[in-house]
Design a protein around this nucleic acid. Structure first.
Lengths: 212, 212
DNA sequence: AGCGTTATTCATCAAGCGTTGACTTCCGGG
DNA sequence: CCCGGAAGTCAACGCTTGATGAATAACGCT
């Protein structure tokens, strides 16, 4: 245990100060943060753990982002644009919306944005207040826009939307959060083939169980 | 701020020692624990918070159960018997299994065991290793038994089981964890009516999307 | 060469966590 | 009536967490 003392000769002490070479450290920290938040959720991940995974000191994270919350936002918000998603989903026939919805979603999860999305969902599922925030965000940014685009009657819309959310959330949770096999290892097309009909029925099929 | 000193007269100090009357404290703590664990997950809930919710001192929880983990187990494990669930599900035709499965599950969640289940699920979804434990437990205790009862071929069984899990997990998550309306406020029968056909298709219908 | 800016680390803080042991009060059986 | 054990509280411990401020090293510019 070589305790370092203040005032010792610089060459003897552990390396401090700026690191030589180009600084890609910032992105490295964001990636590490997304990974840690994805594995343990917001509460479970620690600044020290993220810093260690990125090979830096904890204080550097505060130097860049100021707080754990800000770092979480930065790591998670960066690669996602819900407005763009909603716009892409709104192009095409409603009879094909189920397939497009699931396909687009899986595409996002398989992309580099995947860990960030997992971090977001895992954190939301672990805490009640975070869950409410995410729910309101998704509903207002995506669901409402889609419903207006396709002019779904308001009284049915809420139930159909909730049912769609239930199956989508289920696939995401089973495949990415919990890791239920073989769903977790299946190619996206196979998942779409199996689940899209369910979504389509929730969107424009019978939903009362009595031939409505 | 009346700081209490050791050696002061007993009548002046805050009440300590055993509480008069009948001791229903133990169950009160278990209920409070289930509630806190349900709201914040295992990591998010604190012994101090649980103790406060039950109106007791933190040390009393340790006096009874010894550790946070043991208390969690006691609060969560108490009202659940997965073997019994599996047995009840195995009685009846396979053509009705989807409806029975969902109906039984919702019944459990609406019962007094609900908070404990929510505590379990919320904790599992928030942390990767806990999720793996719960997944393996459910699969081995319930899924495998059901599959054997109805002699589903092994190659299809895994996929069909995973799809069922995805929709069931989705309904549970949307209704109880996230609270998506109107799904969260719907009477159980309405949920069953809307979702059971999906489960039944996953169990014995076409799942390849191409007429298999 | 020198200087301001930025990147990076070190040492440390206050707060909150689970846990512990000593203590006090009440109940039930001899 | 007394005494052992159960119920309950208090104060403190050691540890981890997020955060801070000073110190140091490398860069870009002039």
């Amino acid at each position: 245990m070589t305790t370092v003392r203040v005032g010792q000769h610089p060459a003897v002490r552990g390396r401090t100060g700026r690191r030589p070479g180009n600084p890609d450290t910032r992105q490295a920290i964001l990636d590490a943060a997304a990974g840690e938040f994805a594995r343990s959720g917001y509460g479970g991940a620690t600044m020290r753990g993220i810093a260690a995974a990125a090979g830096v000191d904890t204080a550097l994270l505060h130097h860049y982002w100021g707080s754990k919350n800000a770092l979480f936002m930065a790591a998670v918000q960066a690669p996602i644009d819900p407005a763009d998603i909603a716009r892409r989903l709104a192009q095409g026939e409603i009879s094909d919306l189920g397939r497009r919805l699931l396909s687009t979603l899986l595409e996002q999860w398989e992309s580099p944005a995947g860990p960030a999305l997992l971090a977001l969902v895992r954190s939301a599922l672990g805490d009640a207040s975070t869950a409410r925030m995410l729910r309101e965000f998704v509903v207002s940014q995506v669901v409402v826009k889609l419903l207006r685009t396709y002019r779904v009657p308001d009284d049915e819309a809420a139930l159909r939307g909730a049912l769609v959310v239930s199956q989508v959330l289920g696939v995401i949770t089973a495949r990415y959060v919990v890791g239920v096999e073989p769903l977790a290892s299946l190619p996206p097309e196979a998942v779409v083939a199996a689940v899209a009909p369910t979504l389509q029925r929730y969107i424009d099929g019978d939903v009362t169980g009595a031939g409505g």
